[in-house]
């Protein structure tokens, strides 16, 4: 279970998270929605310990990660997989070494076993025979898939998706959504995704949480969110140009 308790984070004078509270249950897929720059990625970075809150606690499997030292944090991070917005593949490594990064760095697996595991992970994301291509040779959709293969390579307990469908065409976006759903059903992991793509959110989420002004203003199943009475959530999910969000900004 992941818990964010009264988490606050400011950048200079701008408060991004303001006493935010969120509980993510084991095995569920939660999607955090909200406008660009509202703090969705910041929330993900808090969950994996890339950022420390100014105040509050981030509890992952009973451990407050804000109190962990570097070693403890790295041990915990091995339970995570993260798909970055632009995939964040290492340009200097080929696909095989990108996917196998954690295996090479943190295990004593031999090359043969690594090759087998890489092929399995690539197969899971629908790719085959691209092990020795460099990231520069891949299309946007392929990069996302390779990023996903890297994220699942160590059989993580928790997968974080930062804007999984941003930057790919609608057909590829739907394929990525299918892939995320498929992986969730096969791997039974806890997943946290942040997006402003409502099609994606409805498709992959068990629950959707709306982040607004540094707080979770509504949380519920996709159906509950679709039928919300909250004007802020309503404006966001319908994409209306006028409403409380635009009036406030």
């Amino acid at each position: 279970m992941i818990e964010l308790i009264n988490v606050s984070k400011s950048f200079e004078d701008h408060m991004v998270l303001d006493n935010m509270n969120l509980t993510i249950r084991d095995g569920e897929t939660i999607v955090i929605i909200g406008r660009s720059g509202i703090g969705k990625s910041v929330t993900l970075k808090h969950i994996i310990g890339l950022m420390k809150p100014d105040s509050g606690q981030v509890i992952v499997d009973g451990l407050d990660i804000t109190r962990l030292d570097a070693k403890g944090l790295n041990e915990l991070r091995l339970k995570f997989g993260m798909l970055f917005q632009g995939a964040a593949l290492f340009d200097s490594l080929n696909v095989r070494d990108n996917v196998a990064f954690n295996l090479i760095e943190h295990t004593k697996m031999d090359d043969k076993a690594i090759d087998k595991r890489v092929a399995e992970c690539l197969e899971l994301v629908g790719l085959r025979g691209i092990e020795y291509l460099s990231p520069a040779e891949l299309s946007g959709g392929m990069r996302k898939r390779v990023g996903l293969a890297r994220a699942i390579c160590m059989n993580p307990k928790i997968i974080l998706y930062d804007e999984p469908t941003t930057g790919v065409d609608p057909i590829m976006a739907d394929a990525v959504n299918d892939l995320i759903k498929d992986l969730q059903s096969k791997l039974k992991t806890t997943a946290v995704a942040v997006t402003h793509d409502m099609t994606s959110a409805y498709k992959i989420a068990d629950r959707i949480a709306m982040l607004y002004k540094g707080k979770i203003v509504e949380i519920g199943t996709p159906d509950e969110i679709k039928n919300t009475k909250n004007p802020v959530v309503k404006q966001f999910i319908t994409g209306a140009a006028t409403g409380p969000i635009t009036e406030d900004s």
């Binding site: 790295n74 991070r77 917005q85 964040a88 760095e105």
Partner: peptide, 16 residues
């Protein structure tokens, strides 16, 4: 690497 989040990715992969 920093602007394309590769350095963040390294950290999430438990690598300093």
């Amino acid at each position: 690497m920093k602007v394309t989040e590769q350095i963040d990715a390294l950290e999430t992969l438990a690598t300093n």
